[in-house]
């Protein structure tokens, strides 16, 4: 067992689960989507991205790009939330943010699939 691998796997899976947690619920109901969950998802996604830096293999490159996609969508969602609050009604804002986080969730799923595929490929 390798501690680095544990940390790596932990952050990638956590990024997906947090993302899922924020995404799940009625798309236009602000009560189903907590801001702290989005915040946690962004932070964990950022950490996962940085952990993927510097891997020159093909799978490493794809892992990094999925993370970048997830980050992009989540951060755009957060920026929309901040900039639109006050001018547009809350259900509309939350719809935008949740749909963006849905895209990020897809990217995170791909990331986890790749991680699993790589692990299976590494035959003992």
């Amino acid at each position: 067992m390798n501690l680095e691998k544990v940390v790596f796997g932990f952050f990638i899976v956590l990024a997906m689960t947090l993302n899922f947690g924020f995404f799940i619920g009625d798309i236009d109901n602000p009560n189903h989507h907590h801001v702290y969950e989005l915040y946690a998802a962004i932070v964990v996604n950022l950490i996962a991205t940085v952990l993927k830096f510097g891997d020159r293999t093909q799978i490493g490159a794809i892992l990094l790009s999925t993370s970048l996609v997830a980050n992009l969508q989540l951060i755009v969602g957060a920026v929309l939330w901040v900039s639109l609050s006050g001018s547009v009604d809350e259900p509309t804002i939350i719809t935008y943010v949740v749909s963006l986080s849905g895209g990020a969730f897809l990217a995170n799923i791909i990331s986890v699939i790749l991680l699993v595929a790589e692990t299976i490929n590494q035959r003992r």
């Binding site: 932070v43 940085v50 510097g54």
Partner: peptide
């Protein structure tokens, strides 16, 4: 570029956390 990214991993994670 990869070398720079690799060396910057630790400080970037410290900042994020």
């Amino acid at each position: 570029l990869f070398l720079i990214l690799r060396r910057m991993r630790r400080p970037l994670i410290a900042i994020i956390i």
